[in-house]
Design a protein around this nucleic acid. Structure first.
Lengths: 184, 184
DNA sequence: CCTTGCAGTGCAACTTGTTGCATAGGTAGG
DNA sequence: CCTACCTATGCAACAAGTTGCACTGCAAGG
């Protein structure tokens, strides 16, 4: 499992509250790992019990109290252990692929609508990634350390989105009779 | 959820037992959806209760009895409904990306070992896909119907593996001092 | 003034998926 | 002969993730 470790990585980059973490899982680190706030709070409690993180209660005026978490020495040890431990490659689960294959003797138009919708969603996400790259890493050649690692991960996400979009376009031009007319 | 629907797709292509399905999830359909046999049996039981599939008990000599499942009309209806229903894009969860980002101020060599290992695994899988393409779809231009859909899905898998391998190589050449010497 | 949204933490119930175990006869190899 | 693997089905316990709900108080917009 890795939500624990994703949290360790995020907290190691910067200490924060459960709320902060939940928001980070909607952005940066959320590009390649997702979690809801409920999940984050649950896991944080377990991690604190295991001694991987420690919490400091901070009072605020006009806002509810918050608990700022930071990684302990034990947490850093666990993170290093986990990084070095061999992990099984992640399993691919694409419902769109299942749909595509299942539509072979069904409603092809319906599946094309879905494919187009996903194409748009992925194009949007690609734009976000590219904008983020331009903004945060304007000079990739000079990157070192943490920024280099973050940029490499972002590059991976960009590659994945581009591949997905290319595939969607292939599927559309192979299945849409309108597209086929042009090519045949 | 989609294991149910992946099973419907697989059974619609050909009727089979829980055991058969479990093996298919190690191959063909397993390239983009995975399931263990326990999971398959559990879900099949529920699907039968819901009337999506029907089972016929078949006695065999020298082998245990088996239950051959096939998709009912209700199952086909459900499949069509699900294919047309909009679904959220799948969430990307890459522990390797988490590890890479987490290794920024840790043991970079350890993470490189992991990256190389995954590169080898993905290269292996790509070979399997390419061999499967050569064997099952020697003339892609002529494909139609079910075979065309299967080929499109396989092309998607090939694209993903190639992208992954390219990314691994980028990461290695960015982080491995040996590779860097050559480029700098 | 009233509603909506943000900041902040959390519980409870449920669904999915994983891991380990059980059973049972046949077949192939050392 | 014994071990190991294949066919075939399934239960039980657990881990992980999702969905829905609850409570507080401030700020901003209509």
């Amino acid at each position: 499992m890795a939500l624990e470790h994703a949290i360790l990585v995020s907290l190691a980059e910067r200490a924060g509250t459960g709320y902060d973490l939940a928001r980070r899982f909607d952005n940066s680190i959320g590009y390649f790992w997702t979690a809801t706030h409920q999940q984050v709070y649950k896991v944080l409690a377990r991690m604190q019990a295991d001694g991987w993180v420690s919490a400091t209660r901070v009072e605020q005026d006009g806002r509810p109290d918050k608990k700022v978490y930071e990684v302990t020495a034990a947490g850093r040890g666990e993170l290093a252990r986990w990084i070095a431990a061999p992990a099984a490659p992640e399993v691919t689960r694409s419902d769109l692929a299942v749909k595509l294959r299942g539509a072979a003797d069904g409603d092809i138009d319906a599946v094309l609508v879905e494919v187009r919708r996903h194409r748009a969603l992925h194009a949007e996400r690609l734009d976000v990634y590219l904008a983020s790259e331009k903004h945060e890493f304007p000079e990739p050649a000079r990157l070192r350390g943490r920024a280099l690692h973050q940029w490499l991960v972002l590059r991976g996400g960009i590659g994945l989105e581009q591949t997905a979009i290319t595939w969607f376009d292939d599927v559309i031009s192979a299945l849409d009779p309108k597209s086929r007319k042009g090519t045949t």
